[in-house]
Design a protein around this nucleic acid. Structure first.
Lengths: 234, 234
DNA sequence: ATAGAAGTGCTACTTAGGTAGCATTTTACT
DNA sequence: AGTAAAATGCTACCTAAGTAGCACTTCTAT
């Protein structure tokens, strides 16, 4: 994108507020902007990431999008990452350049900046300063995968659901964010379960006074009770 | 470790054969050696990684070691990574510098080279060439976590067991490596199950003519049958 | 060499959570 | 406005896999 693009300032400002680029000076940001293009997807757009020739690197500047795998045997989906503003993807194929099959679906209208993944890799190599924030970002991704893995293997459904909710509580408002307006089906996909099971458990939490439930809306009624639910479960 | 250390050449050669350091010249390798010390652990040594003040970065030069989490509710373990020669840890706390609670246990006698993790982070920053191999290594770690996660959530026990075996077949010898001499209990920890369940399934695979079983020894009898077992399960 | 521990191979039983089906409500789309 | 689709809240049922227990074998360490 060149400086005379009508969206240039808008996009540059989105990069400026992204913690991943926070310690880059304007000149460096502008060189990055030179690699990037803007794209918008409507809500509920689906696409498949896996054909190496079309690999791009995406920076989400608004909206949410899920990264998921499907089991072709029974059609069940599992949401590996729920990505939002300031997240980037696909990090795995950025790192190793190999084929990475993954499904994506937007949850809101989404705006992304993107660049060919090889170009992005070259840019990173020639701007090692980005490693100062990129490496911790990668660490966070690995940590999320690891926690998710351990929880799915070792914890039961009530614990997994409570943990999912607790990990999305906004510290200042004490209220649920990011996943508060997802359907039971989407919640199930995030904890490796099914719609019916999640609904059954949500009713339990509701009756216990932990949650307030409305259509596509979950809010926290008693945070302490939720914390008790997972307490001791490391 | 300084050049006059009796193990200096031995250790330097171990670094030379490590793909992670393959495109570093000798001068750079020697600067790395300056940060490192050698340590040996006996088989079945256990330790806990989680107190930030003692964080070190380790490079395994011989032997195997498992990285695992414990569920304190029921005592069940889950092996997150089985690390071996040329692997390094802990990558997560190297990247983000935050507390990372993890249990470790050696499976063989293990030799490691180690450095304080902050020192290692500084060394990486001042030798950005390492990123050429480090970033793909990180990508591989994330990929393993991701595949592991998806499999545990979406696949049943027979599929998970068959996949575990297949992912450890040596391409040239067509035989099982790395996990061939583990007990049923250790296998169970790798696929998020229990000893009894794994044994039950191993007997099924044995009766089907897929595997040969002896005490702490699994070998492949019919690779094709094993491939059929997972086929179609993406 | 011997005792205890570790590993294996079973049977029988239990249960968490997945599945199926349906009624009701809300939303989205011509 | 009216119909289809999506989302929810249930009941009833099923099954994969976890648990318990035990006999037997093979290591390991004094």
């Amino acid at each position: 994108m060149t400086a005379n693009d009508p969206h240039y300032e808008y996009c540059l400002n989105k990069l400026r507020i992204n913690p991943l680029f926070e310690n880059l000076d304007d000149e460096t940001l502008e060189s990055l902007m030179g690699c990037l293009s803007l794209k918008k997807w409507n809500k509920n757009s689906e696409f498949f990431y896996g054909d190496q020739t079309f690999y791009k690197f995406f920076i989400i500047i608004s909206g949410r999008l899920k990264m998921y795998q499907i089991d072709i045997e029974n059609g069940r989906e599992f949401t590996v990452f729920l990505l939002t503003q300031n997240d980037v993807f696909d990090v795995v194929s950025l790192l190793d350049g190999l084929k990475h099959s993954m499904n994506f679906e937007t949850i809101d209208d989404v705006e992304v900046l993107y660049a060919p993944i090889d170009l992005m890799r070259d840019w990173i190599e020639s701007h090692p300063k980005i490693n100062k924030t990129l490496l911790p970002y990668l660490g966070r991704c690995m940590r999320m995968l690891e926690v998710n893995l351990t929880d799915n293997v070792l914890s039961d459904i009530p614990t997994r659901l409570a943990k999912l909710i607790l990990s999305n509580v906004n510290e200042s408002s004490q209220q649920l964010q990011l996943i508060n307006d997802l359907s039971n089906y989407e919640i199930a996909n995030m904890i490796g379960s099914t719609r019916a099971v999640v609904n059954r458990q949500i009713q339990v939490f509701k009756k216990a006074g932990m949650l307030d439930i409305h259509r596509k809306s979950i809010s926290i009624k008693d945070l302490k009770l939720l914390l008790d639910e997972v307490s001791g479960k490391y």
